[in-house]
Amino acid sequence: MSMVRFDQVAKRYSGGKEALAGVSFELERGEMAFLTGHSGAGKSTLLKLMMLMERPSRGQIFVDGQNLNRLTPSQIPYHRRKIGVVFQNHQLLFDRTVYDNVALPLLIAGYNHMDCARRVRAALDSVGLLGLEGRKPVELSGGEQQRVGIARAVVNKPALLLADEPTGNLDPDLSEEIMDLFMRFQQVGVTVLIATHDISLIESMNKRRLILEHGMILEDRHVF
């Protein structure tokens, strides 16, 4: 059973704009893929559909074997706990410490304090930020902030990791560092899907590429 399956998925926003027009693809467990395409091609929309931030107008999406169309609103939070997400504008809480930011998903899932502390340390360690628990995000560089966002996304050990422009604001060196981090998560078995503009960055990475254009998959370049 694949981790993610899109089956003729279309999304038309209420404004009448068709962001996706019949997209089908599968992501195997432990696979890593990039989602590219011009601005407005529908990359963010595709990720939002997986998080149930939007509902598809047509077609079916399966995540971890679960048909998302069948999920009721009260089941959505539990679905979201299975997925780690990283956004370009990292969505950190700036009045909280790094620790509190990373611990948030665990707190929500009901972990006790000891487990929580252990997992937060492990997550911060895995992004190379151990020791910064007590800092506020404003006291960190852009790259460090992005890594805090990644730590939060992986702290719950999700099976699926989604990232929308995770390197958008970062210089090339930092971007490479972040991508490297994602590769390492794939190496420990996480399925990773990253939407990005940055063709030059992923060119060298030898990973599968899904190219969106005007809401359709123009090219699905597998790497073997």
Partner: peptide
Amino acid sequence: QVGASLAERPAETRSRPESGPGALQQ
């Protein structure tokens, strides 16, 4: 740094691939 810290990741994290599909959710 990242590499080093990843190597030190707790066993539970590293063992995830072996735990097989479907066992990922807590």
